[in-house]
């Protein structure tokens, strides 16, 4: 078990290094003087010179990378060109806003979709199955930003049940904050349910045709015992991995939802920074999100043996 954990941790290391290299390299690909890019158009020559030595631009690329990594490890992601804010605290505060939406949405979607998918598989080719799969495929095909607009139009503008624009943090005003989160979370839940129902159904189908399921029935077990005790745990593994991937992908792709609902999250920060050519912030966002994605997948991997003890043995 310890070996398994260590192995997975070791396997994540090169990925983390290469992700950092990619983020570092990406910004260096932009034509122009990196120091000038990092300081923006208003920079004074002496500032640029100072930045030159800070980034070590007179040194070789590997050395520059090491300097940059050293700063990152110490929590120094640079300062925003636009308002001179330190990047890391900015990214973290915005990340928390996005994360609460994404995590709650994925949790809710899984709780609804996974049982639905299992039942669809159990009743394969029945009316229930067709209805569930059909619905899932349609949900999956609706782009989130459009769905968000439609929900906004209906619940916000036509029915006026929920606030339309803006955001109040849950910390400062609990009920008010929650009201602002209902629509974005609902949008994501509806969309991801489509993905998860299909995934859970497919992996359950794979498992249901295996011998041990027939054997469980041959023992005299009830259908619900066969389905939940024997099939579910084995079928959940692949779905569990997909849940991890969705979590990470949503963190990366949340910008559209935040735009629809004008929520000041990480995605919006990244897009605004691209508009403003605020490279230190872009770099910070990229690095932060991709590293959290690696981390989420690592955790997912480490928990996988709960559903399939075989992976530890490999």
């Amino acid at each position: 078990m310890l070996k398994f954990v260590l192995n997975r941790l070791l396997m994540a290391l090169p990925t983390i290094v290469l992700v950092s290299v990619t983020v570092f390299a990406l910004i260096r690909f932009i034509p122009g003087d990196p120091a000038a890019l990092m300081l923006g158009d208003m920079a004074q020559p002496d500032q640029i010179a100072a930045m030159h030595s800070e980034l070590g631009l007179d040194k070789s690329l590997p050395e520059q990378f090491l300097i940059w990594t050293g700063n990152v490890v110490q929590g120094d992601f640079g300062r925003s060109i636009v308002n001179d804010e330190a990047v890391l605290p900015l990214v973290v505060s915005r990340f928390l806003v996005s994360a609460e939406i994404v995590v709650v949405a994925v949790l809710l979607a899984s709780l609804i979709a996974v049982p639905a998918g299992v039942i669809a598989a159990w009743r394969q080719n029945s009316l229930t199955d067709l209805a569930l799969v059909g619905t899932a495929t349609i949900l999956l095909s609706i782009p989130t930003f459009w769905l968000g607009l439609l929900l906004l139009l209906w619940f916000g503008l036509k029915l006026s049940w929920l606030p339309v624009l803006g955001y109040v943090s849950v910390g400062s005003n609990l009920t008010g904050g929650l009201l602002y989160l209902v629509l974005p979370i609902m949008t994501l839940v509806i969309h991801e349910m489509g993905v998860l129902i299909r995934m859970a159904r497919a992996s359950t189908l794979e498992v249901l045709r295996l011998d041990y399921i027939t054997h469980a029935r041959a023992k005299g077990l009830s259908e619900s015992a066969v389905l939940w005790r024997h099939a579910f745990k084995n079928a959940f593994g692949p779905t569990w991995t997909v849940i991890g991937l969705i979590l990470g992908n949503l963190l990366g792709g949340i910008a559209v939802i935040e735009t629809v609902f004008t929520i000041p999250g990480l995605g919006r920060l990244m897009v605004d920074s691209i508009f403003a050519r605020d490279y230190p912030v872009i770099q910070g966002c990229l690095l932060f999100v991709s590293l959290s994605y690696v981390l989420v997948n690592l955790v997912v991997d480490l928990l996988y043996p709960l559903f399939d003890p075989r992976v530890v043995a490999e």
Binding site: M270, V294, N297
Partner: peptide, 13 residues
Amino acid sequence: ALLAFPGILLALG
């Protein structure tokens, strides 16, 4: 490493 960037994020970068 490239796959470790979630979906649209790499495209944004």
